[in-house]
Amino acid sequence: MATQQEILSGLAEIVNEVAGVPADDVQLEKSFVDDLDIDSLSMVEVVVAAEERFGVKIPDDDVKGLRTVGDAVSYIEKAGG
């Protein structure tokens, strides 16, 4: 089980890889679309990379609920990542 901090820094690495956003800018309160400029296609990449990294499943229907980085961190934490 990863800590919240480990999940956040893992997500930050993924977002940097996919979208070029500096890892330090990936904060809990940031919105993927509005703040980090991640479009729907890139969001799919982020989700798939997160599933692999944290060993969780994030069904497509649940992706819509992941508005902020904090939403994703909580989801992965609860899913046992």
């Binding site: 296609l41 890139s42 799919v44 990449e45 798939v48 599933e51």
Partner: peptide, 9 residues
């Protein structure tokens, strides 16, 4: 699941 969402464009 790993097929890139950018594949078609």
């Amino acid at each position: 699941r790993r097929v890139s969402p950018h594949s078609i464009p």
